[in-house]
C-alpha cells in the first residue's frame, strides 16, 4: 500500500499516549491551588514516559490533594485519611508490573498517617510519593496542620499555634532506609517536573516534598514564599536534580550538595529559615521490600497442591 516496501516500515508502539489519555474530568480544586500544577506536571511525566494508563495506579488518602486520582485516567485508589501508604504498599507488593504513585497531604501524611509514613519510608517499595504540603487543613476549612508554622492562626488556634511544626524532609531523612528525598515548589513547574521525573526514575520509595500555596487559607504565606528571593536555595550537583540554565538563573541563592551525603542532607534539612530545592538524598542500594514481594510469584496450582499435600502428611494420623 502507498508503494511502501514492508521492510522499510518500522515497528511503532501499539499506542501512543497523549496528555489527554491521562486526564479525566475537570479538577475541582480552588483556582490558584498548587495541586493543579502537580497534576499537570504528573500528566506530562506520564506522557513523557509513555506509561500504560492501565498499569499505572494512583493511591491517595483524604484531603484536598487526595482527590488527585479522580483526575487521572489511570487506575486509582482514593482511600482513607492517613492510609494511602499501606494501600499503596499492598498494591505494589505482588505487582512489579504496576507503576504506583502516592498523593498525600500534610494532614494525611504527617498527622493521621504519620505511623504509616515512617514505615513506608522504611519498606522502600518502588513508588513515587508526592506530599503536597500547604501547611493547613483546607477540606475541613482552615485548621492547623502538623506542618503549620508557629503562630498560625486557624479555626482551632484562634490565638496562633504554639508547637513547632514537623519538618517532613528532616523526618524522612531521619528514618532508616530512606532512599530518595527531594523538595520542590508549586510555583516553579520546571523544577517540579524535573523533581517528579527524578523521583519516578529512582527505584525505591521516592519522597517528594512539594511546597505549595493554598490561596484560600494560606494566602500571605504563599505570597511570601513564592516571591521572597532570599528563601529559596537551589541545590546543585551533577547527581542531583538539574533544571535548564534559564530556570537555574531565577534562583538568587545556590549551593552545591552531594545527594549521597546523608549527614549534609540532614544538616540542610534542619535549616528551617531556608527552602532548599532539589535532591537532598538518594541511595540506590537501600533494600526494597517490593523486591521481596515479587520474589516468589507465579507458583502453579499443582505446586501449591503439593505443598498442601505434604503438610497434610505431616499432620496425618
Amino acid at each position: 500500500m502507498y508503494g511502501l516496501k514492508s521492510d522499510l516500515v518500522c515497528d511503532l508502539p501499539s499506542k501512543h499516549f497523549s496528555v489527554e489519555d491521562y486526564s479525566k474530568g475537570v479538577a475541582r480544586w480552588c483556582p490558584g491551588c498548587g495541586d493543579h500544577a502537580v497534576l499537570n506536571n504528573t500528566q506530562k511525566l506520564l506522557k513523557e514516559k509513555q506509561l500504560d494508563p492501565a498499569k499505572t495506579v494512583f493511591v491517595s488518602g483524604i484531603g484536598c490533594s487526595s482527590r488527585f486520582p479522580h483526575y487521572m485516567d489511570t487506575y486509582g485508589f482514593h482511600g482513607l485519611h492517613g492510609r494511602a501508604f499501606p494501600v499503596a504498599c499492598g498494591v505494589k507488593f505482588r505487582r512489579p508490573d504496576l507503576d504506583v504513585f502516592v498523593i498525600t497531604g500534610d494532614g494525611d501524611c504527617c498527622s493521621i498517617g504519620a505511623g504509616a509514613w515512617i514505615h513506608a519510608i522504611r519498606y522502600n517499595m518502588n513508588m513515587t510519593v508526592m506530599l503536597l504540603n500547604n501547611e493547613i487543613y483546607g477540606l475541613t476549612k482552615k485548621q492547623i496542620s502538623p506542618t503549620s508554622r508557629i503562630g498560625t492562626v486557624s479555626n482551632t488556634t484562634p490565638e496562633g499555634s504554639i508547637i513547632p511544626p514537623i519538618n517532613p524532609i528532616q523526618t524522612t531523612l531521619g528514618v532508616s532506609n530512606a532512599s530518595f528525598v527531594a523538595q520542590t515548589a508549586d510555583w516553579n513547574p520546571a523544577h517540579m517536573y524535573e523533581t517528579i521525573k527524578a523521583g519516578f526514575e529512582h527505584k525505591g520509595f521516592s519522597f517528594i516534598h512539594v511546597i505549595q500555596r493554598c490561596p484560600i487559607f494560606q494566602l500571605s504565606l504563599g505570597k511570601e514564599l513564592a516571591t521572597n528571593k532570599d528563601v529559596m536555595h537551589y541545590m546543585e550537583h551533577e547527581d542531583g536534580i538539574t533544571v535548564s540554565e534559564d530556570i537555574a538563573k531565577t534562583f538568587k541563592h545556590k549551593l552545591s550538595h552531594d545527594p549521597t551525603d546523608l549527614s549534609a542532607a540532614r544538616k540542610l534539612a534542619m535549616d528551617t529559615d531556608k527552602v532548599f530545592m532539589g535532591l537532598f538524598y538518594r541511595d540506590e542500594n537501600a533494600p526494597r521490600y517490593d523486591e521481596y514481594g515479587a520474589s516468589n510469584l507465579g507458583y502453579t496450582i499443582e505446586q501449591k497442591e503439593a505443598v498442601l499435600d505434604a503438610e497434610f502428611d505431616k499432620h496425618a494420623i
Binding site: 482511600g79 482513607l80 499501606p86 499492598g90 507488593f93 505482588r94 514505615h119 501449591k304
Partner: peptide, 22 residues
C-alpha cells in the same frame, strides 16, 4: 514454599490496608 507471603505490618490498621491494596 508455595508462592505466598506474610506481611507483618506496622499496626493493625496498616495490616488491613495492605491486604486491601493487595
Amino acid at each position: 514454599k508455595s508462592g505466598g507471603l506474610i506481611h507483618q505490618a506496622e499496626d493493625e490498621i496498616a495490616a488491613i490496608g495492605f491486604a486491601i491494596g493487595a
